[in-house]
Structure formats: C-alpha cells, structure tokens
Design a protein around this nucleic acid. Structure first.
Lengths: 120, 120
DNA sequence: AATAGTGTTATATATAAATAGAACACTATA
DNA sequence: TATAGTGTTCTATTTATATATAACACTATT
C-alpha cells in the first residue's frame, strides 16, 4: 500500500511520505504498536534518500504519530484510526465523483474549497 | 475569496496560488472570459513576489485554464466549472466530517487514500 | 505624444528541499 | 564477543522555491 513518491507533483517528497504513512494509520491498515519497515527498505519503497525518509519520520514523531527506538525500528505510537462508517461515506462520495469523470486533483481542490467556505 | 498564502504549510506558494484560482473557476465564482486582478494586486492579495504569481499563472496558462494578453490582463480561458449537484454532495460530506471532529488535513488524506485504493 | 496601467523578462541573492555517501551508535542474536 | 540489522548524525553538493529589484513592452486614454 505504500507507493513510490511522485517526483513531478510539486509536493515535497517528505510530505508525500508523511501523508502516505499517516493515511495507513488512519485507515487502520497500520495498527498501534506495529513496526514500520526499516528505513533502508523505506528508501527503496518510496524511491528517495534516507535523509528524506528520516525527515518525514522525524516530523511524524513530533506529531506523536510515530515513535522510534534506536537499533530496533519505528513504531505506530497510538491508535488514531477513524470510524469505519466515515470511510464508508467517503467511499460513496469518491464513487460519485469518479462516475462524473472528475479526477483526484480536481476533487481534492473542490473539497478543500468547500471546507474553507463552509461557515461553521 | 482569494486568500493570503500559508507560508508554513510546506506546500510551495505557487502551487497554493494555482489551487486557489483553479478552485474559484471550478466552483463558478470566476466565469469564462472574466478578468483576474492585475498581477501587482495579486502580489498583495497572496502576499508573495510577482515572480511567484507569474509562475503560478504561467502554469495555469500551460494547462489551458487561463490566457493572457500583454498590456491588458489575465483571463479565464474557458468554462471548467462543475455540476452544482456535485458541490452539494461535497458540502454534505464535509458537514459530516466536521461534525465527527475531523480536521481538513486528515479528511483530505483519507479521501486521497480511499480514491487511490478504490479499484474503480 | 505622453502617461498610467497592464503583462513580461532578466539578474542576483537567499532559503528550502533533496541527494549522495560515509560514519557512528544501539540492539539482538549467533 | 563478534556480527548483522537497525536507527542516527554529519558534511558536501545540487536543485527547486522564493525574494528583491529593475527594466522592458504592449494597450488604452488623455
């Protein structure tokens, strides 16, 4: 489920990595306490340098999402997974958006804009 | 509706600018043929240098979203606004997500991930 | 013709992001 | 105790982003 980083998206690689890892945790695919692949494997998976991996993992540590133990590995710090019902609702909307021919990028733009304009 | 750029988000300013402008067009707030504010006003609105504005506008030109005429201004090239029904559905989901206490960033992450995992 | 309001191009500088490569430090196990 | 598998730190280099500043070019209006 972890994918190679898109080097032409304009989004910094370390951010893409943070996002991917955080998503897995939110969706419950990476449970609390479970270990991430070693950094030198992540290097290959994401296709970036160790330092870029480290930057992403460090920031997730600062956010309290991950913890690390030297010589052992990186771990999911705690359970931040979301209600599966929400995932279900999202899945429905995504289906609708796709069926109307919208692409991911456009969809995210719209959602962000609606979010920010919604008065509440 | 055009907002100052967030310089601490980690997202390059020119991308944030592209996104904001494109959103306005998608939502129908900027109609085809209508003119954008002059670049030196955009400089103030977004709080970045002209060159950053230019980079964003140039890219939107390449995408065919905008056109420009020297000495006159930048214009919305064509109508790419989305079906208002879609906006409505998005508004509903956004409401749900907010009521469950999720923040924008987390929500976008989830949506992106669901999108990519959905086998069409 | 002059001017004000536009977009456009250019140069120099500074900062952030990413890479490469190496070395170091801790942990578990043979 | 040696070793393999980890995370961690460091330095140097390159590329991408962003700023500052100035000049230039086109358009419309006075």
């Amino acid at each position: 489920m972890l994918r190679r980083v898109d080097k032409h998206s304009g989004i910094p690689a370390y951010l893409q990595i943070m996002n991917q890892i955080k998503s897995e945790i939110l969706l419950g695919n990476l449970k609390a306490e479970s270990r991430l692949p070693p950094v030198r494997e992540l290097e290959i998976i994401f296709d970036v340098n160790v330092n870029t991996i480290l930057k992403a993992l460090d920031k997730l540590k600062s956010e309290g999402v991950l913890m690390s133990e030297q010589g052992i590995g990186y771990f999911v710090a705690r359970n931040i997974s979301v209600d599966p019902q929400i995932t279900q609702e999202i899945r429905r909307l995504v289906g609708d958006l796709k069926s109307k021919g919208l692409d991911l990028y456009t969809s995210l733009l719209l959602i962000e804009e609606v979010w920010k304009n919604e008065k509440l």
